Simulated scan of single mutants.
Amino acid sequence: MDLAQALWLGLIQGLTEFLPVSSSAHLILLPRLLGWPDQGLAFDVAVHVGTLLAVLLYFRRQLMPLAANTLQSAWRRERVGDSRLGWAIVLGTVPLVLGALVLADAAETILRRPLVIAAATVGFGILLWVSARRQGGRDERDIGPGAALFIGAAQVLAIIPGTSRSGITMTAALWLGLDATAAARFSFLLSIPAIALAGAWKALQLAGASVPVHWGMFGVGVGVAGVSAYLCIGAFLALVARVGMTPFVIYRVGLGLILFWLFAVR
């Protein structure tokens, strides 16, 4: 991997992580289309850490009180402030951990195939459109234990590149009656433990790896992904409040059809 590849992949990650278009699919497909060597899942996880730093910074004023309320709720065994939202994030993370243990090997091999990505891009794009038509006026603070587990179970599907972690969690939240902005905010908050756990696991694997790791290129990717993701979060929340999810559905279906043509028809 050279500097240009690290820069472009970091930028792609930052711009697509919080949009419902699948950053993983773009990270896999861009090298294939440009003839670059596959950067591997380790680099993909590294640039996801850049977007983790971005979402922590963006929601910094909300996260400390949210964590404090949740810990107080655990101690007192009663609801404290926004602790219901905190517990929803915790419960929503549990299915992802279990799913990752089962599907980790497949995520690095067969699920990275272009036709799998194309099918997931189109299929889950259509599902996003269907769910967006069901959205209601509920807020992320209205998410109870059952809804949190449902959204968390949907998040497991993001192990399939092309699904989009943010896209599938927004889809599930919209299906349950949240409005588009609330669904996006909960998706972003739910990304924090998901990305942190994935990054920690891969870091442990890399620490004992016998193959060389290009930490400098990883650092470039993380930095570019973090800056671009931070700028993207606010822009996306403003856009989805005005126009909803339709532009992203159109993009997904169009991209998926192009991928089918490139890798199956041509």
Rank of each mutant, 00 (worst) to 15 (best):
M217S: 13
V227F: 03
L259V: 13
L255A: 11
L231G: 15
H214A: 15
G221L: 14
Y230T: 09
I258R: 06
G256F: 05
Y230A: 09
A209S: 15
R242E: 04
G216A: 10
I250F: 01
P212V: 12
L259C: 09
G234R: 05
V220Y: 04
R242G: 00
A229S: 09
I233D: 00
C232P: 04
G244H: 01
I233P: 03
L231Y: 00
P247Q: 10
V253R: 09
L255G: 00
S228V: 13
V227Y: 02
H214S: 14
M217F: 08
L259R: 11
W215A: 06
M245S: 10
A229T: 04
W215S: 05
W215M: 07
A229Q: 01
V253P: 07
T246W: 01
G254W: 07
G256A: 07
F218N: 11
H214G: 05
M217K: 14
P247A: 08
S228L: 14
L237E: 06
M217Y: 13
L259P: 04
R252H: 00
F236H: 08
V213M: 07
Y230D: 06
L259Q: 07
L239E: 02
R242D: 00
P247E: 10
L257M: 05
G254F: 02
I258N: 00
Y230Q: 06
L231K: 00
S228C: 11
V240Q: 00
H214L: 14
Y251L: 12
M245C: 09
V243D: 04
I258Y: 03
V227L: 12
G256T: 10
S210H: 13
I250C: 05
A235E: 05
V213D: 04
I258H: 02
V253E: 02
A209G: 15
R252T: 03
L237S: 06
V224F: 06
A225D: 13
G221M: 14
V222M: 13
L255H: 05
V211R: 15
V222C: 07
G223Y: 05
G219Y: 13
C232K: 08
F236Y: 09
V240Y: 00
G216I: 13
V222I: 15
S228N: 09
I233A: 01
G256Q: 10
G226T: 10
G223R: 09
L257E: 01
R242L: 01
S210E: 15
V249P: 03
L237N: 07
L255C: 12
